[in-house]
Design a protein around this nucleic acid. Structure first.
Lengths: 112, 112
DNA sequence: TCAACTATACAACAATATTTGAAATATTGA
DNA sequence: TCAATATTTCAAATATTGTTGTATAGTTGA
């Protein structure tokens, strides 16, 4: 995970439509849905959906496999944890003393 | 966490600059940094940084407190897990059978 | 009060993203 | 092969976002 990939993923999720698509595909994991089913559920014009699916696929957020005349999309479920790890890397590293609260015997960043 | 808030957070992280700011503040949790320190580390013009800090604050990704003439910014560390939970809500709910892989005795979405 | 410093607000321009409609490609089944 | 279906591609119009410069507001210390 590098900065460019991370921003691409976040950009993918920064649109209400793409967020809806991703969450729909999460609910339908691991089988996924074909493009037409997604368009029907979210009530989107097929060409607009195609635009967003392409962006999400390019970001690696979803996978696509050909299935006859259909395109089946699946959520890439493990990418999220990788992203979180990237975001919270070296958490509190520059200020470990303040992070370690002796009265609680816990680190402030452990909840992530 | 609702859709609007989630997209706002993702939008906040969809810029390389804001991603840098957030990760910098994560490293400097829980004390945080004042705006001038952030600008110095990331080598940004103060007015541009202010623009991005405002967006991040509005999204709830960071907090700000007045400190004399300085503004101290801190990363909102727990927001991430809330966001993940929102993203992965009802994971596999629509296809639980396929998700439960009997040969592995595990659910496909447990890695999140 | 004054000057220096920190930070934000606003306006204008450039760059980018999104939506829409029309057309193209590819697959299926009769 | 032909018609129907599924999906993508392209170009144009629209909307949004990012950057920069300038101006403004508040704080500090002499």
């Amino acid at each position: 995970m590098d900065k460019l990939h991370a921003t691409k993923i976040f950009e993918s999720l920064a649109s209400g439509i793409r967020l809806d698509v991703f969450r729909l595909l999460v609910r339908h994991a691991p089988t996924g849905l074909v493009a037409g089913e997604i368009a029907a559920v979210l009530e989107l014009p097929p060409n607009n959906l195609s635009f967003h699916l392409k962006a999400m696929t390019h970001a690696g957020l979803i996978n696509v496999t050909q299935e006859g005349r259909y395109q089946r999309y699946r959520a890439h479920l493990t990418l999220m944890q990788t992203l979180i790890d990237y975001l919270t890397a070296e958490c509190c590293a520059a200020d470990a003393e303040a992070c370690f609260d002796t009265s609680k015997a816990s680190k402030c960043c452990e909840s992530i």
